[in-house]
Design a binder for these strands. Structure first.
Lengths: 225, 225
DNA sequence: CCTACCGATCGGTAGG
DNA sequence: CCTACCGATCGGTAGG
């Protein structure tokens, strides 16, 4: 019989540098039950931040390990390759972006200018995805798409399609009402490009705010009517 | 004693692999007179193509050397580092782009809608710079800006500024005439982004042509009036 | 521009 | 998740 208090971690512990002691006791059966399972999100976040700042090739797996207090070989316990880690970052980012996007669109109030409000919310949600605090996952995808294998690209293309698909009905409505003159398909590509390119120049600490950016984008793409 | 013929290479020789014989005769004095002086443009073109396709980090200097039939150390005879080669590619690309752009703007006929025609030509010239045959230099700049040193970025920023500056008076005229509603500075950033992002999705072999793309962009950004 | 080479770094792994 | 390590690759250089 094991004393109950031995099943608990010590209260004080240098959590960032020293590896936490493994909890002992009953055997762990599923991956979710493992204590080290919760290092995976930290690994993903650190990788996203470093990949965004330095690029995929310029970031070593040793950099990533060090950023979360691991030793050089340990990331490969969680991900079978550096590329798999990159792909996981992108998938995580796209899932969060899709969730954020559909939340935003659903909040748009019904009314005569509903499509306009929906577009505004899509644009604003996109900027949040790119420039929100800690949102490095999707910018990594925009930059490092080329570093994936063909198979990984295929896995991601469904998520990308879902993300972009949300724009089509809104743009079609705006085209029908005369707010948008360009062909819908090209308009979608150009609009998403205009917004996404902001990762190259937008600095949250100076210049326009995300709200002002959203206003400017709306004014640029839409006719008054 | 060694038979003289053993000192000569065999007469038949695969020319792509074997290095060409040096011309003999009078000594060469200036760099321009050297036979190898004309290998530099080939090196730049090969580097641009490979950097665009594979990325800067994923392309080795050995890849580049092989693409022009050199041996692995020889590119460093022409460029003092891999980064210097990258920077030269970008400078070359920006100079060509600026020349192409000012040619295009000057061709615009005077008239009541001159600013409209100038914007159309700016857009079309930008697409040519990104998607014209052999125009890999500027796309490399858009992708690999991060791989430069701080000093190199500084050297390039003047060229970039000159390129972007050409858009401002045109956009200001269109703003004044009511064709453009968004603030000029943000409009310029968003427009250039929309166009530049096309390196991610445009395929000259299918879908819209560059002329159709230009039409769509004009329709997207401008009001009828 | 070639030959021959170096030092450093990197992704990844075996075994515990 | 750590320890200890490997094979491969890479940018760059000395000397000719």
């Amino acid at each position: 019989m094991i004393a109950p208090q031995l099943l608990h971690k010590p209260a004080t512990q240098a959590s960032a540098v020293a590896p936490p002691k493994r909890p002992r006791g009953r055997p762990r059966k599923t991956a979710d039950e493992r204590d080290d399972g919760n290092r995976r999100p930290a690994l993903l976040s650190a990788a996203a931040r470093l990949f965004r700042r330095q690029g995929f090739d310029a970031t070593s797996t040793r950099d990533i390990a060090a950023a979360v207090g691991m030793h050089s070989g340990s990331p490969f316990y969680h991900f079978k390759s550096k590329r798999a880690l990159l792909c996981a970052v992108m998938e995580e980012g796209m899932q969060a972006a899709i969730a954020r996007q559909s939340r935003a669109v659903q909040e748009a109030p019904a009314g005569p200018d509903q499509a306009l409000q929906q577009l505004r919310r899509l644009i604003r949600a996109h900027f949040d995805t790119l420039h929100g605090r800690g949102n490095d996952f999707v910018p990594v995808m925009l930059y490092e798409h080329r570093s994936l294998t063909e198979l990984q690209r295929l896995a991601l293309s469904k998520l990308q399609h879902d993300y972009e698909a949300a724009w089509t009905p809104v743009l079609e409505a705006l085209h029908a009402s005369g707010h948008l003159r360009a062909p819908v398909k090209l308009a979608r590509l150009l609009i998403l490009g205009a917004l996404s390119w902001s990762v190259q120049w937008f600095d949250p600490r100076k210049g326009a705010s995300l709200d002002e950016l959203t206003d400017a984008a709306m004014a640029l793409f839409l006719k008054e009517c």
